[in-house]
Amino acid sequence: MNKKKWLSTPYLIWMIAFTVIPLLLIGYYGFTTRDGSFTIQNITAIFSPAHSKALLKSLYLSLLCTVVCLLLAYPLALILKNKNVGQGGFVIMIFILPMWMNFLLRTYAWLNLLDDGGIIERIFSLVNIPYQSIIGTDAAIILGMVYNFLPFMILPLFNVLTKMDENVINAASDLGANSFQTFIKIILPLSLPGIVSGITMVFVPSLTTFVISDLLGARKIMLIGNIIEQEFSIADNRHLGSGLSLVLMIFILASMALINRYDKNGEGNAF
């Protein structure tokens, strides 16, 4: 039995080489200059007007996207639970299936739908509603984010809700709670691991995206992800890029801590 333990060692080495050391390297580059001396300028660079504006914009859009996803996904997960479609299987398939069409291409397709002369404009003009293209505005970015990350909110919520003990809910209504009270006092608190896991899985990728703003922002919207990406790919300044990434990681670590606190047993896992 003891020999088995060693089977996990190769993966430990792999994780140290390709998860731990890479993160430490970001720390190293973030706190050094090109000639290798220590500096905190790469971190404080976040307070420059352009950078802080981009960070605030990212925070604003990703928080809004997270709220919209939660509000859309919770009723959906409840409906799916009540439909008794069974655990996993079919439901997961419906939400994973779109991933088989490249995500850049799917996001790009929204251009076709939303842009001037696009499909939505033509549908609107059939019923004589004036339509203004939202491409290049905050609304387009949020739509792109919600579209891409909604499944990551639905799946953990659905998992937690279907695993919930039906007897607890029945007991509440037997004891005289109406359906609203049952929801607030029983279902909502019990689904907390799923909510927290869903929030993290939507918030982190939408906070750090640079692709969605690239595709739907018409080059007008700079998010913190775009700035970091350009530091690496265009400006070739990995020190500044790493420093700004470290700032982003504060938010990522905060969400990880949130998960560790409320979803210890992984009940809210998406898959």
Binding site: S8, F18, T19, V204, T208
Partner: peptide
């Protein structure tokens, strides 16, 4: 510890994972 390490690539932002791997390959 294993499970926490295992969770990092899933919870971390792809941007940070991608950048950090790029740095480690160069190193």
């Amino acid at each position: 510890v294993y499970m926490a390490l295992n969770n990092i690539p899933m919870l971390n932002s792809e941007l940070v994972t991608g950048l950090s791997l790029m740095l480690v390959f160069a190193a």
